[in-house]
């Protein structure tokens, strides 16, 4: 298996990207890499070129570039060339830590959607706290589409189910709809419509609405939401966790000497909490619904996180997670078209 890597994307690129790929190369003997970037910058950073091919890309898409315009105008950029290599079959998956919008646009427009899928969804894995039966859950869409229709959410549920089964090891994942209450009649008209659709879908283990405050307790294995809400909830979760840690730290610093001594003894505990809440360790965000794995990791990712994300991509490829989705949508194309037509009435 060969992975197309955007060497130029991310806050610490290309240095940390190259270092991360070298760790991954040593860790996974069966994986090869095409590293797209400006060779004069990338080559001096590479210690050992075994299973790593450098591909010259003259241009770089910056974090502030407007996504669709950038992928249409910067045809020699590392993101565009890497995505084209995946589209043309030279590589099996796409990885970048760069401009999220441009990565989504490249996935959507260059690699392309799986036939039958209206809108691919961006998904991320988050931790479940204090639940012996479950240590993570999946949420989608977390921001690929700001405006989602009920039919899109139905498709996210299917995409999430397959990912949870093939990559995360859930047998029959519990699908929950993120809503402002658990009762079936909660939410606006769109959410009530989605609740009905998911409830009647025979292939889904739908458990009903879930509230955002229960997510980290493991309310569902796959949480389905529209991209606008999903993005807001994801950022709020991350921000709240960091704020609470800061609050604890400040209270200790301003407190008594015994408090400080106690805190010193609890240092490993705090480290564990931080580690559990660091969702980059669960890998990158995956654009589900496109023809090959497209994975974006945090812009601030360092080498170790990048290597972990490569492990996630390897698992997606080994478990044929995309092929499973392709065959599901192939087998259910008539049903899907009828459902879409029905929902547009």
């Amino acid at each position: 298996m060969k992975i197309a890597v955007d060497a130029m994307g991310g806050d610490y690129a290309p240095k940390e990207v190259v270092a991360g790929i070298e760790i991954a190369r040593d860790r996974y003997p069966e994986v090869e890499f095409d590293l797209f970037g400006q060779n004069d910058k990338v080559k001096p950073l590479l210690n050992n070129a075994e299973r790593i091919d450098l591909v010259q890309a003259d241009e770089v898409i910056a974090m502030e570039d407007e996504p669709v315009r950038a992928i249409r105008r910067k045809k020699q950029s590392s993101i565009v060339l890497a995505a084209q290599a995946v589209r043309d079959g030279a590589d099996d998956a796409f990885f970048s830590a760069g401009n999220t919008g441009a990565i989504l646009a490249a996935g959507l427009l260059i690699i392309g959607r799986i036939k039958g899928i209206d809108r691919p969804g961006l998904t991320t894995t988050l931790p479940v706290i204090n639940n012996p039966k479950q240590d993570q859950f999946l949420m989608l869409d977390v921001g690929a589409n700001a405006d989602s229709k009920p039919f899109n959410l139905y498709q996210y549920a299917i995409l999430g189910k397959y990912y949870a089964q093939t990559v995360m090891g859930f047998d029959n994942p519990r699908i929950g709809l993120l809503n402002n209450g658990t009762e079936a009649d909660k939410g606006d008209m769109a959410h009530r419509a989605v609740h009905d659709i998911l409830g009647s879908a025979k292939d889904l283990n739908f458990i009903g609405n879930v509230e955002s405050r229960e997510l980290l307790n493991g309310a569902a294995d796959v949480v389905v939401t529209d991209g606008f809400t999903g993005n807001a909830v994801l950022k709020n979760t991350e921000g709240t966790a960091l704020s609470v840690l800061k609050l604890i730290k400040n209270s200790i610093l301003e407190g008594s000497l015994t408090g400080k001594l106690g805190a010193a003894m609890l240092k490993p505990t705090f480290k564990n909490i931080q580690n559990k809440m660091d969702y980059s360790k669960y890998g990158g965000a995956v654009l589900l619904g496109v023809k090959a794995p497209v994975i974006k990791t945090h812009g601030s990712a360092k080498a170790e996180t990048i290597a972990n994300t490569i492990g996630q991509i390897k698992s997606m490829l080994e478990n044929h997670s995309v092929d499973n989705v392709v065959s599901y949508f192939n087998d259910h194309s008539d049903e899907m078209a009828a459902m879409k037509a029905d929902m547009q009435k």
Partner: peptide
């Protein structure tokens, strides 16, 4: 075809003919 199909098609035209 939907709007995304159309943008994909425009991109393919640009790549094929080297036109902007």
């Amino acid at each position: 075809a939907d709007s995304i199909d159309f943008v994909e098609f425009i991109l393919e035209l640009e790549d094929t003919f080297g036109a902007e």
